[in-house]
Amino acid sequence: MKIHQISLFLENKPGHLNAICRTLAEAKINIVTLSLADTQQFGIVRLIVEEWQKAKEVLEKAGYVVNVREVVAAAVADKPGGMAEVLDIIGKAGVNIEYMYAFAFRHGSEAVLVFRFDNADRAIEALKASGRDVFDAVTLFNQTK
């Protein structure tokens, strides 16, 4: 039930993010969602793409250091309290969220979020037990088409 996220190191300088996106564009890889974590000095780009192996390969060829991590994509009700409800489930399961960001698309009336948990398996179990949708790669990328 986990999906692959690739991340790259980025200096905070004009044009650097563009160069990454251009490399992917030339390889005809669509970025499903992207999140940028930054400090004053540097940033980390996190990307969800369908063909993550290919993306890793072209980016590495272009000289980037690429990290692959497993993350969880889960549905959250798009209404007041929706997020709190999910965080309750996670909190009760004793799982810590390292970071999270949202997908650009919706799943019916719900928003889809990307989570990086310290214990993904336990989080998935808890979310499913509470009836939340957790997506595998195939279902997730079908949503985007």
Binding site: Q5, F9, A37, T39, V65, N67, R69
Partner: peptide, 15 residues
């Protein structure tokens, strides 16, 4: 320079 070994997708680790 950041390397394959030192890079992490986590800000805390890099800091």
């Amino acid at each position: 320079e950041v390397t394959q070994e030192t890079f992490s997708d986590d800000i805390k680790t890099l800091e």
